[in-house]
Structure formats: structure tokens, C-alpha cells
Design a protein around this nucleic acid. Structure first.
Lengths: 234, 234
DNA sequence: TTACTTGATGTGAATTTGACACAAAGCCCT
DNA sequence: AGGGCTTTGTGTCAAATTCACATCAAGTAA
């Protein structure tokens, strides 16, 4: 095998991270403006080379932390993009992840590799560097599928949330028209039938209308139900 | 960026392919016995280095064809495995795929990199080379999910099949007990309500019991239904 | 002709989904 | 203090789907 090294050990591996956040009624993605060639000054997904002694999963977590300061974030590998000419400087294979962050906890810390970082509404994206539009899109589709079958929406919301916020989140991710999309009563019935979304007996404060009750997601309870054969769905 | 080359362009990328087949009542995987170090003489997933000028998807298709002679096979990328020490000879990142082949069409052609190739029953696997047990398992779980939501089971069956064969296939992939698993009448009702599984008005021949009707999967019809908003499920 | 094996088929109860509208809570303004 | 505004919270019924369940039919083999 040593004789193969010359030929094969010449690829660079990067990770690209589609960082989702949810704000008011909009699903957003955190993009950086590139500060170096290639594609300088274009918006791009946050990403970096994987270091020689670094697991790929760890590289993604590192990038996320460098950029947002956040640790222990929901991260999921989606797909690897390896077209021969996707990078102008050589053979670069990119492993795409998405992550879900609570946007309120985000603090602007553009990493060294970026001039600035900014949340972009998913419904309104321009052309990105490299094949990043394709990557972003693939990750968004994956999120859309995941959200219906795993209770990961809560990763995007503050720890205490209202059912209306939760519904808006689902509508944003599933790209449903708020009018015709999810029926409020049926949505609440479904959600509350899952006993791991617990009523905190608290209410919103300082809103100019009837205050909504606050709920939280109880991960321990969820995992207990799962281990009893329960199956989350929409 | 050129200054980074020294550091980063040192990884090798491989693909590993979990090739599924279905035979009688058993889901099988095609494994090769390794003919070279490392892990010589152990069973492993068929895989190879991705050539410098080869797309990753193309590499998988190539391996499959070298091994089985089959082209135009169902192939799906699953996940990339990139732990630092997964390969003893250096940093090797592996992109895992699964593929679905009609086992009857398989002809033994062990590729140059293998001493021999053999179908192994999925329910009865020994220890494999590298992290291939983990890869295989991940791919199997992915197949299990996909089969419920995409009509890909047909890729594993001959063009003309009986409903009993189809049901056995589902039971094997979903790891259901044939007794308690799927109800025959309900299964057939569901399947036949999808109008893209068409009755050929032919029967089995040479079986020592009442011959079963033969059906085929009509891909064009399926795609027409999909484009009309239809959603396949189980 | 009989026995054996597997194929084919329908009904009714239980559950789930989906559509739909109005009163209640709190803030703001006058 | 009262009225208006905005958003919250809640139940019923019809329709559709799911699930459980048993018997006769078709062909081969002896």
C-alpha cells in the first residue's frame, strides 16, 4: 500500500456547516462573507479544513464554536460532496453538516477566516461560493424530513416557548403557508398528546394581548418514551 | 492557500459499498475476503480509493461494476466515516454507500483487490475489517428507513415478482417476525392500492402448490403519481 | 381421489385525521 | 373604568385509515 501514497494521499477534506436558527417567524442560516480567495467577498457556508489529527465530527463542532461560541449544539452529518472540480485549488472533498442553534444565544464572533457573519433568511438567498447553494439546499431538505420524525425543533427555540412559537417553527421549516398549513387546534392536540412537552404553568409577560402559556421539552421523558417503543411523528 | 497544501492535501478518500441482495427469505450483503494488508484474509466491504480525477459517486459505481458486472444499479450515499485512526496506514476518510442489486443477476467476478466475494446473510455477520461493522450497520439502518418511504424494494427483486416475495422482502429488511409482522391481507390491500404495482396476468410455473400471480413495478407510473403529489409510505 | 401447500380474498370495530368557530385574557387607550 | 384590540385556548363530529381476523381456491404429488 505504501506505493499508493504518492497517488492517493493528496486530497483535502473540509467540513461545511449549515447553521440554522429561528427568529420570529423565519428560518435563518448563518453565512460568512469570505475574506480570502477563492470567492473572496462572496457569502459562503462556515467551514474549514479538517486537521490531520482531528475527527471530522470534531472539526464541525470546532468551527461552530469558533464562530458562535456555542458548544453542545445539535449537529448532524448530511452528505459528502466530492465532485472533482468543486474547488478551484485542488481536490477538496467537503462533508456537510447542519446544526440547530438557539438564535438568541448567538453572539457575533466572526472567526479568523471570515470578514463578517450574518443570519440570512432561508427564503431569500443569493448565490453562494463554491457549490454551497447545493449543499445548503440538501441540508435544508434533510432538516425538513428530520423535523417530522425527530423532536429536534426545540433546539431552535428558547428553553421556554409557547405552542404558537412551536407551530410557527414547524410551518417555517416545512414551508407551509401559515393560513392553510397547520390547524391550530389539531396541532396542539397532537403536541400535547406527547407527554414530554410539559406545561410550566407560567405565562408570557409584557405582551399586548392575552399571554400564552409556556412549555418546555423534557428530553429525559422523551427518551423514556422512545425506549418504550414510542415513535415521534410530526 | 497554496501555503496550506503541505498541511492539508494529505488525506486519502475511499468509498465503501454495502451491496444488498435478497435471496429467498434472507437479506444479504456482498463481502470480499481481503487479499492484501491491512486486515488480510478478513471479510470486508467492497471499496477502493477514489481516483484523483474521479467523482466520488463514480468511484462507487465503478467498484460495483468491477465486482458484479452490473451497471445502472440503485446507489445511495449514506455517511462519511472520518475518525482519525480508522485506517492503520494513514488518514483515510471513507464515504459509505449502499446499493441494491437483483441477486439473480449477480455473477462472481472477484475484483483484483479481493480473493473472493460472497453473499453473507445480514443476520449472521462476523467481525469485519476496519470499522466496516459500523458502516454496514449504519447503512442497514438507513435502508430500513428508506424502504418505508421510497419504493426501492423492487430493486432487490426480479422484474416479475409475487406479492408474497415482496412481503417477505419487507419483513426481512424491517426485521419483522414473519408470524407477527405484516398481515397478508392488509399488506396486499395497501400495495395494490398503489396503482404502479401492476398485475401481469401471469402466474408462476413449476411450483408444487397454487401458483401465484406475477406483478411488476411500473416506474413511469410511480413517477407520474409522485409528480401529482402522491406520497409513498410503507 | 385425496392430501398437501401456498394463494387469494372482505368485513366490521377501533383509531386517527381533519375541518371548523367562538369565548377568554391581558394590554392600551381614552 | 370601559371598550377595543390582539392573540390564546378549547371540543365535536364526520370521514378516512388502520387493524384484526378465517376460509375457500388452485395446483402438484402420491
Amino acid at each position: 500500500m505504501a506505493q499508493f501514497s504518492h497517488e492517493f494521499f493528496k486530497t483535502a477534506v473540509t467540513v461545511d456547516n449549515v447553521i440554522f436558527g429561528f427568529d420570529e417567524a423565519d428560518l435563518k442560516v448563518l453565512l460568512i462573507k469570505r475574506g480570502a480567495e477563492p470567492y473572496v467577498n462572496m457569502w459562503a457556508l462556515p467551514g474549514d479544513f479538517v486537521y490531520p489529527d482531528e475527527d471530522i465530527d470534531a472539526a464541525t463542532a470546532r468551527i461552530l464554536e469558533e464562530l458562535t461560541g456555542l458548544k453542545n449544539v445539535y449537529l448532524e452529518q448530511v452528505r459528502t460532496f466530492g465532485a472533482v472540480n468543486r474547488h478551484p485549488f485542488g481536490r477538496v472533498v467537503s462533508v456537510a453538516y447542519f446544526s440547530l442553534v438557539k438564535i438568541s444565544r448567538y453572539t457575533v464572533t466572526p472567526a479568523s477566516f471570515a470578514q463578517k457573519a450574518k443570519w440570512h433568511s432561508i427564503s431569500n438567498l443569493q448565490e453562494l461560493a463554491f457549490d454551497h447553494n447545493e449543499i445548503l439546499n440538501t441540508c435544508f431538505q434533510t432538516l425538513k424530513q428530520r423535523i417530522r420524525v425527530r423532536p429536534i425543533g426545540f433546539e431552535l427555540l428558547p428553553p421556554k416557548f409557547t405552542l404558537t412559537e412551536l407551530q410557527h417553527l414547524y410551518e417555517a421549516i416545512l414551508e407551509l403557508n401559515p393560513e392553510t398549513g397547520l390547524d391550530k387546534r389539531n396541532f396542539r392536540k397532537k403536541i400535547l398528546s406527547m407527554d414530554f412537552i410539559v406545561d410550566l404553568n407560567e405565562s408570557q409577560e409584557g405582551v399586548a394581548h392575552r399571554p400564552a402559556r409556556l412549555y418546555e421539552f423534557d428530553k429525559d421523558k422523551y427518551e423514556k418514551f422512545i425506549s418504550e417503543g414510542f415513535n415521534f411523528e410530526l
